[in-house]
Design a protein around this nucleic acid. Structure first.
Lengths: 204, 204
DNA sequence: CGCTTGTTCGGATTCAATTCGGAAAATTTA
DNA sequence: TAAATTTTCCGAATTGAATCCGAACAAGCG
């Protein structure tokens, strides 16, 4: 950000610009959105964009940050109830909320997720990964019998990355080969079967 | 492609342009490569780019297509040996080859994969998904006992998408939280545990 | 060799991103 | 409240990359 907004008025324009960025991106995709469009939607002169953002990229960056922050804010309050559920139900619950979240507001965040994964994807989603890792940790602590499972960090990595990607990919696909419920059920089975098999192996 | 090359000379230019695209993209990433750079590396005038490509995007599109075609060409000959191996070995084998392939030529294809997944990812990688689905089908036919597993299409979808993404993501990450071998082993365990557990459930 | 068709090129054009300097609004100071 | 100062806003001008275009050059062909 080139300059910090100090007056209330300026904070409002910054918000309007970011909001306009979401609208423009949802309409035409990130590649096709121009600074002029964003400015017009925001009801602001083009020059104003550069008062608070270094360049167009930074607008997208802030949008991604807001998206990740909102995702975390969506997940955090779910944690206490999720960690008390059986594994399969827990996964289904989380995925259902995630889908609803991505599809809200004309799929605003779904489009954002698609873009966020494209460039510098490690930078932006890292806090989200951390939150999900914490969710896994808390889950394990509420189910002590699962602590015997080997390779927990590896499995977290796979399920978090693979899960997020599969879901985003599926929701973006206009003609997916399977339904969302099948996908969610499959991911839940994948996790539950893995844990069951691991526990059987470790303590026969 | 605006026009088809008919003479040998023209085919060579098209090849040089695509090749230059790979080199430029590997050097600076897709966003930072300009038409001028591609033309210079190819030893060709800027105008020549537009004889055979509608625009810069199309150069990237052709690159993605070549990448996917090469990936398939890499996997096809592996199928006969892979389908005869135990599941865990089979997955490890496939992932090892995939990693080597992505990292060859100064990670040319790894960078390409990252880009291919960004825009229109369903279009480009679809043939690859089909090939991998066939691999799964053939594998199942060589191991008739696994045919009892439920939700095979769903599980293919998850493992193919989640697996490709996890691997690409991991290889792009300069400081990954786990090693590649851990990731590969984890994916192999995920698949094998799932099949084992499913088979135990279906025929106890 | 003339003729036609295919190919190459780089300057000219177009269009979006970014800059900049001054006007308007808000805030502070006296 | 009025002047001074700071903050905000703007849109015409600049910049640079993408794309177009028509002349010049090569290849095939009778």
């Amino acid at each position: 950000m080139a300059r910090k907004p100090v007056q209330q008025r300026a904070k409002a324009t910054v918000d309007a610009i970011v909001e306009a960025g979401f609208i423009a991106m949802a309409e035409r995709g990130p590649a096709a959105t121009t600074t002029r469009q964003i400015a017009d939607i925001a009801g602001v002169g083009v020059g104003s964009l550069y008062e608070y953002f270094e360049n167009k990229e930074e607008i997208f960056r802030v949008m991604s940050e807001r998206f990740v922050a909102d995702t975390i804010a969506m997940i955090q309050p779910l944690i206490p109830t999720i960690v008390r559920k059986p594994i399969k139900e827990a996964v289904l619950d989380l995925l259902g909320h995630f889908r609803d979240f991505l599809q809200a507001n004309n799929e605003r965040y779904l489009k954002c997720a698609r873009y966020a994964m494209a460039l510098d994807f490690e930078q932006h989603v890292e806090p989200l990964q951390k939150t999900l890792s914490e969710l896994v940790t808390q889950y394990l602590m509420h189910h002590p019998e699962t602590l015997k499972i080997r390779n927990i960090p590896t499995m977290s990595y796979i399920m978090i990355n693979g899960g997020i990607y599969s879901v985003v990919r599926h929701l973006c696909d206009p003609a997916p080969p399977i339904t969302f419920d099948e996908l969610a059920g499959g991911l839940a089975d994948m996790v539950s079967h893995y844990t069951e098999r691991e526990m059987a192996l470790v303590s026969p």
